[in-house]
Design a binder for these strands. Structure first.
Length: 920
RNA sequence: GCCGUCUUAGCUCAGUGGUAGAGCACUCGCUUCACACGCGAUAGGUCACAAGUUCAAAUCUUGUAGACGGCACCA
């Protein structure tokens, strides 16, 4: 069979995915083994507003490698996909659209219409990322696709809310919260980031003390908040102010009088030692206010403008304008002491970068004490979840939990899960699953539902079990992905009903591993762990793989503003999906990586190498086909075959081990070197003659090894391996793993090679190493002596009888790869002076007579280089072996090993020196 | 302020208590009938610095310098 000369990824990517998907290969039901163990992963649901970025591509690759590997191992495998409703992001998109298209504000169209449009937006744009995942080759079960606002998932949300409320773990209250004046919503602590501002200012304001001619100076970075001051605090031990405690201040720009109080919170050493107290605009001041029973005066509106309480002069003015104005007025009054430059870190909204305002507000919170203890308990007693890499994540996770504060869960948005709390006219709260239920509780009174929605992470926190059909009160609707769907069921082939063993929730939870980034360990991972334990009494997942960050070429995180982003889709187009995947898998687990196109080229080249190796096998496969029987009964096989079978099995064993430890990069490296170095550079080259003459036995064996190698590569490079596997003669549905017997032919349902320890042949590897060593030494001589590749040489070898037998048996191969026309074997060398020489391990010596071709200076130099190299090592060994402490204390094997090595080195050096002297 | 990570060949990165590895780039040679996205052969590193533990340290400990991350605070 003849195939194209170079691999064209697009062709292979074209059809296979559709066939896999429509054949139901991605669904756990494809596994017909009733005793199959399960393997499950739920995807971190990407935002519906998102499109695929490198971080997704990395995480999806890892999840798909694991899923495909486990599926091939015969597990009943589920990788569950889904999307997140992304409250603020979608809300902002719809607001923008409304403004752009109709010049309207959300309030112009009302909540109901706004939510309708948000759904329409989601329907129209929300599947970008799911389509891109198909391109990635992600073997997710689309029939189980979930969206955080699906009916069942929403029911789960309400159910959890009601339960937590009834148990007193959810409460509503007035607290200082992070307020984003642009999004006009409260944010949780985790959604607030910090931005350092170097040109900040610290303003020193003088407040006149009533009944004295003194003023007291306070420093502030936010002068406008002074309009809400209700006290000035000093440290009780601070002698500078002790006589002022209890006196009253006439607060400038207002007609209010505020007390001077004493509180331990104030650090006398810092600033002026006097602090303005604004309980409604600062968390610390809020606490001070509670202790001293101070009024809480809110002076700002929800859009960051000053309100009526700030006084007529300031009402309606933006907070930053008001700041300027306050400072101006203080200056006019002669009450501005000074303004210092001051580097400050400002809290900003994670999404819109607007400066967040701490503000007193009535919000819903989850009390985290008990849940935190649950999570800590899981970690302490079971080490769950197990993080990869364990350092530093386990410690960071634990430390964060230990200092956990209550979670603000209400958001002033319309898009999301509306809080299931209703109020009567008197403000009494009724929390219930539905409005009917709430009304019933309220004795039939007219009720109004809370206008806020829940934090997006509240529903995400239930993802591990809500996706499997958990809705709270009732048992899961049914198993097997038959619960309400948001995605078209693209499964064309009817699959048998789910296996016995219960619902998806029973079968697939806990999931085996969660693959995610560092940034959402607190936001999401911890909350899933806690909420799953609380509501299903299970671990959400056993393991967590924390991926690193894919950085731009400049070494900084990819971002639109830096314009250093790399689009995975572009990489797919340029290098192929498989090349991108195996490159991403080659990054050490958890390590950050600077993006570099050159590296992905290596992977692209590897894909092409695989293609061409297969092409070569196919060109010469007349009459042969894949036949696993041909690898059995190894003892009678030629060395090269015993060797490659040994290497193949060793590789399989090591790849499985690496994957089990989540060391994907090790697995990739093993496969790369096995395939390229062992299989292509040595095995195929050694076999070329036999193959070219159409030796069916040889071609059968090479096709079979090829087939096994493709299986091992499949989880990393699904398209290429499927394309090639289907082309190999002899592959068919007959070859599928036992659990998948009824499926159509595909590499993705064959058995992943487990590796056979009994096939590892140390003798063959040793003998082969000798042959390789010999060939390399001759090649070195040829290259250094500038022998034309068309010129054949004669190779003389002096070696033990055993080694001679080995070289004799592989004479044809050695001749071919060393480009020799004869090999002369003996127990000593008998060659003319004009020969180039080298030593092999095992006491052997080789010589290549080069009458008329040898450059004696160069040969001397060559021998000297070798001597120097060996001598350096010998010196080191002598140093160690002459150290009495080493000989006494180091393990005896180690000492013996070095002694042997020393003996060999001495022998080799002596031989080389003799050769050097002989040249004169 | 607290906690933590990183520093290895020109570049991007693996690795590890017992002779330093890969890919790319570089040098030399190959239109060898699978592949120039290729083949063959070289060259290239006091593993940031210092001290300690050890028979043995690039690897463990401590400190220093530089880069970075998380958390807290920020009148």
């Amino acid at each position: 069979m003849e195939i194209a000369k170079a691999y064209d990824p697009k062709e292979a990517e074209h059809s296979h995915y559709e066939r896999w998907e429509s054949s139901g290969f991605f669904r756990p039901e494809i596994n017909q083994d009733p005793d199959a163990p399960k393997y499950s992963i739920v995807i971190p649901p990407p935002n519906v507003t998102g499109s695929l970025h490198m971080g997704h591509a990395l995480q999806h690759t890892i999840m798909d490698v694991l899923t495909r590997w486990k599926r091939m191992q015969g597990y009943r495998t589920l990788w569950l996909p889904g999307t997140d409703h992304a409250g603020i992001s979608v809300q902002r998109k719809v607001v923008e659209q409304l403004k752009k298209d109709e010049h309207k504000k959300p309030t112009d169209i009302g909540r109901e219409e706004f939510v309708r449009r948000a759904w329409a937006w989601k329907e129209q744009y929300g599947n970008t990322i799911t389509e891109q995942m198909r391109r990635e080759g992600a073997s997710v079960d689309w029939s189980r696709h979930r969206f955080t606002m699906d009916e069942d998932l929403s029911k789960a949300v309400r159910s959890v809310f009601v339960t937590l409320y009834n148990e007193g773990w959810i409460y509503k209250g007035l607290r200082i919260v992070n307020w984003c004046p642009k999004d006009k919503t409260v944010l949780s602590d985790l959604e607030v980031k910090e931005e350092t501002k170097k040109d900040g200012k610290l303003f020193y304001l003088k407040y006149p003390v009533i009944g004295t001619d003194r003023t007291i100076t306070v420093a502030t970075t936010r002068p406008e908040t002074m309009l809400g001051d209700t006290a000035v605090a000093v440290n009780p031990k601070d002698e500078r102010y002790s006589d002022l405690i209890g006196k009253t201040i006439a607060l400038p720009l207002t007609d209010r009088e505020i007390p001077i109080i004493a509180d331990e919170y104030v650090d006398a050493e810092f600033g002026t030692g006097a602090v303005k107290i604004t309980p409604a605009h600062d968390p610390n001041d809020y606490q001070v206010g509670l202790r001293h029973d101070l009024p809480q005066l809110l002076v700002m509106n929800d859009d960051g403008t000053m309100n009526a309480a700030a006084g007529a002069e300031f009402e309606g003015i933006d907070r930053f304008k008001a700041r300027e104005k306050v400072v101006e007025r203080f200056e006019e009054l002669g009450l501005l002491e000074k303004v210092d430059d001051y580097e400050i870190t400002l809290p900003v909204c994670e999404r819109c970068k607007t400066i967040v305002e701490p503000i007193l507000s009535d919000q819903w919170f989850v009390k985290m004490d008990e849940m935190r203890d649950m999570a800590l308990d899981l970690m302490r007693t079971q080490g769950a979840p197990h993080f990869s890499p364990q350092v530093p994540h386990e410690k960071v996770y634990t430390a964060w939990l230990e200092n956990l504060k209550d979670w603000t869960i209400s958001r002033q948005l319309w898009w999301g899960h509306q809080i299931p709390a209703w109020y009567d006219a008197d403000g009494n709260v009724f929390v219930a699953m539905t409005d009917d239920e709430a009304r019933e509780k309220a004795g039939g009174k007219e009720l109004m539902q809370d206008q806020d929605v829940l934090d997006t992470w509240f529903s995400s926190g239930l993802w591990a079990f809500s996706t499997f059909g958990w809705t709270g009160s009732e048992p899961p609707a049914s198993a097997g992905g038959q619960v309400s769907r948001t995605d078209k069921d693209s499964t064309a082939v009817a699959l048998p009903p789910p296996h016995a063993g219960g619902s998806d929730l029973d079968i697939f939870l806990p999931t085996d591993v969660l693959v995610t980034g560092r940034d959402i360990i607190f936001l999401w991972v911890s909350r899933m762990m806690m909420l799953t334990k609380k509501f299903v009494d299970k671990k959400a997942f056993e393991d967590v793989i924390v991926t690193g960050t894919v950085l731009g070429k400049d070494g900084k995180p990819m971002s639109k503003s830096r314009n250093n982003g790399v689009d995975p889709i572009e990489m797919f187009d340029k290098f192929g999906v498989d090349a991108t995947r195996i490159y991403l898998a080659s990054i050490a687990t958890g390590a950050d990586i600077k993006w570099n196109d050159l590296l992905i080229e290596t992977s692209r080249n590897f894909a092409n190498k695989i293609w061409n190796a297969t092409r070569f096998c196919l060109l010469n496969s007349e009459g042969a086909k894949v036949d696993h029987e041909c690898l059995i009964g190894r003892s009678g096989l030629p060395l090269s075959d015993r060797w490659i079978i040994s290497r193949l099995n060793q590789t399989a064993i090591d790849v499985n081990k690496s994957l089990a430890k989540y060391e994907f990069h090790t697995a990739v490296s093993l496969l790369y070197h096995f395939f390229w170095d062992d299989f292509c550079d040595w095995y195929i080259e050694l076999k070329k003659d036999e193959i070219n003459i159409g030796d069916v036995e040889a071609t059968t064996r090479i096709l079979t090894i090829m087939e096994i190698a493709l299986r091992m590569l499949h989880p990393f490079m699904p398209y290429l391996t499927e394309e090639l596997w289907l082309k190999l003669p002899g592959t068919s549905a007959e070859m599928l793993a036992s659990a998948y017997k009824s499926a159509d032919a595909t590499i993705m349902l064959t058995a992943f090679p487990p590796g056979d320890a009994s096939a590892i042949d140390a003798a063959a590897e040793g003998e082969m190493q000798s042959v390789i060593d010999l060939i390399k030494k001759v090649r070195n001589i040829r290259a250094e002596m500038n022998i034309k590749s068309s010129d054949k040489v004669s190779v003389h070898v002096a070696a033990s009888a055993e080694m001679r037998a080995n070289f004799m048996a592989n004479e044809a191969q050695i001749k071919k790869l060393a480009r020799a026309d004869s090999i002369v074997l003996g127990d000593s060398l008998d060659v003319p002076k004009a020969s180039a020489k080298a030593v092999l391990s095992g006491g052997a010596e080789i010589a290549v007579p080069l009458e008329g071709l040898i450059d004696f200076d160069k040969e001397r130099e060559r021998l000297q280089t070798q001597i120097t190299k060996l001598d350096t090592e010998l010196q080191r060994l002598n140093g160690q072996l002459s150290n009495a402490n080493f000989v006494e204390r180091a393990p005896a094997e180690k000492v013996e090993e070095l002694r042997e090595r020393k003996g060999e080195l001495e022998q080799q050096i002596a031989t080389l020196k003799l050769n050097l002297e002989a040249l004169g």
